[in-house]
C-alpha cells in the first residue's frame, strides 16, 4: 500500500513549491513591463523607473510588516489611519522641538504605540483582529482631527524634513534605500532566524506552537508592534514627501497594502507567504498604476485593476492548491 501522496512528482522541487506562484507573478511582471514599454517608450526612462520605485517604497515598507502579520495569522486595517496620524505627529514635534530627528522619532514611535495597542487588544482582550483594527482605524481617524484641525505645515521650512523623502544616496532616492533596508531586514528575519520560523509556526498552528513551548500571544504582539513602527515610518516619509502632516493622508492605503501582500501569495489564514512574493505584488500593482498613467488611460482604472487582480490571484492560488491536494 502506497503511503505517500505524490511519490515522484513533487520530490526534489517540493521545497520550491511556494515559489511556483512567484514564477507566475514574475512572468506577469515581465509581461506587463514589456507590454507597457512597447506602447510607451518612456516607461524605461530613468525618471520613470525611479518614480515607480519611489511609489513602491511606501507600500513595501508597510507591506513587509503586513506580510509578517498575515503569516502570523492576524491582520491590521489601521495602518492607513495610523500613518496619517504619525505623519502629523512627526511634523508637529519637528515644529515644536525644532529637531527633525526628534520629530521623526516621535512619528515612528507613535506608529509603534498604535501597533502595541492593536496587539494588546487582539492578544489580551481576544478581539478578532479584523474588528479590532477597524475600530482602531476609526479611533485614529477621529483622533487625528482632534489632534489637529488642519494639515500641519512645515513651519520652519526645515529642509532636513523634506530630505527624508526627496534626498538621494547616489542615484537612488532615500525612500527606496529605506524600503530596501526594511525589506532586507524583514527578509532575513523571516527566512533565517528562529523568530521567523516561530512566526510561521504560530500562524500555521498556534496550538501546536504553544504545545511546543512557544508563546503565540507574545509573538503576535511583537509583529503588531513591528507593523505599527513601519506604518509610522511610512507616515513620516509621506509627510516629508508632502512637506505637511496631512490628517486625511493614507485613506485606503491599508487596502492597497493588503492587496499587494495577498497578490504576493500570502494566505489570509496564516502560516503561508513570503516577502519576495510581497515585493512582486507591490511591483506589479505599482507598474500597473504607472502604466495607466503613462499610457494616458483614465486614472480611475487605478482602483479597478488591483481589485480584479487580487480576486484573480487568490483564485489562481486556490486552483493551484486544489491541484496540490490531489
Amino acid at each position: 500500500m502506497s503511503e505517500i501522496t505524490q511519490p515522484a512528482k513533487s520530490g526534489p522541487v517540493a521545497g520550491r513549491l511556494a515559489n511556483n506562484s512567484q514564477i507566475v507573478l514574475l512572468a506577469l511582471l515581465v509581461v506587463l513591463c514589456i507590454g507597457i514599454s512597447l506602447s510607451a517608450a518612456q516607461f524605461y526612462s530613468v525618471e520613470n523607473v525611479i518614480a515607480i520605485l519611489r511609489q513602491c517604497s511606501l507600500v513595501l515598507i508597510v507591506g513587509a510588516g503586513m506580510t509578517m502579520l498575515l503569516i502570523a495569522g492576524e491582520v491590521d486595517l489601521s495602518v492607513g489611519a495610523s500613518l496619517a496620524f504619525s505623519g502629523c505627529v512627526a511634523m508637529d514635534v519637528t515644529n515644536k522641538t525644532g529637531s527633525v530627528f526628534l520629530g521623526a522619532l516621535a512619528g515612528i514611535l507613535f506608529g509603534g504605540l498604535v501597533g502595541l495597542f492593536n496587539g494588546l487588544v487582539v492578544t489580551r482582550l481576544k478581539v478578532n483582529s479584523l474588528i479590532a483594527t477597524i475600530a482602531t482605524m476609526m479611533i485614529l481617524q477621529g483622533g487625528v482631527f482632534l489632534y489637529t484641525r488642519e494639515a500641519v505645515q512645515n513651519k520652519h521650512q526645515q529642509p532636513a524634513f523634506t530630505d527624508i523623502s526627496t534626498g538621494y544616496l547616489g542615484p537612488i532616492p532615500l525612500p527606496v534605500i529605506i524600503a530596501a533596508a526594511v525589506f532586507a531586514c524583514a527578509y532575513v528575519a523571516l527566512r533565517y532566524t528562529t523568530l521567523g520560523r516561530y512566526i510561521y509556526a504560530v500562524g500555521a498552528n498556534a496550538k501546536a506552537a504553544r504545545l511546543s513551548g512557544r508563546r503565540p500571544e507574545q509573538l503576535k504582539l511583537l509583529v503588531f508592534v513591528v507593523t505599527g513602527l513601519l506604518a509610522g515610518l511610512t507616515g513620516l516619509i509621506l509627510a516629508s514627501l508632502m512637506n505637511t502632516g496631512q490628517p486625511t493622508a493614507g485613506r485606503g492605503f491599508e487596502l492597497t497594502v493588503i492587496a499587494a501582500v495577498i497578490l504576493g501569495g500570502t494566505s489570509l489564514l496564516g502560516g503561508r507567504g513570503t516577502l519576495l512574493g510581497t515585493l512582486l505584488g507591490v511591483l506589479i500593482l505599482k507598474v500597473i498604476d504607472n502604466g495607466i498613467i503613462i499610457l494616458r488611460w483614465d486614472q480611475n482604472l487605478q482602483m479597478i485593476v488591483p481589485g480584479v487582480v487580487i480576486v484573480l490571484a487568490t483564485y489562481l492560488d486556490l486552483v493551484r492548491r486544489r491541484a496540490d491536494a490531489r
Binding site: 517540493a14 521545497g15 528562529t194 520560523r197 516561530y198 510561521y200 509556526a201 500555521a204 498552528n205 496550538k207 501546536a208 506552537a209 504545545l211 511546543s212 513551548g213 494566505s267 502560516g271 503561508r272
Partner: peptide
C-alpha cells in the same frame, strides 16, 4: 493541535528543538 499542515516536514519536525 499538532501538524502545521501548510509547512514542510523539516519545520514540523524541528519546531520544539529549533
Amino acid at each position: 493541535e499538532g501538524l502545521m499542515l501548510e509547512l514542510p516536514v523539516l519545520q514540523n519536525a524541528s519546531l520544539a528543538s529549533l
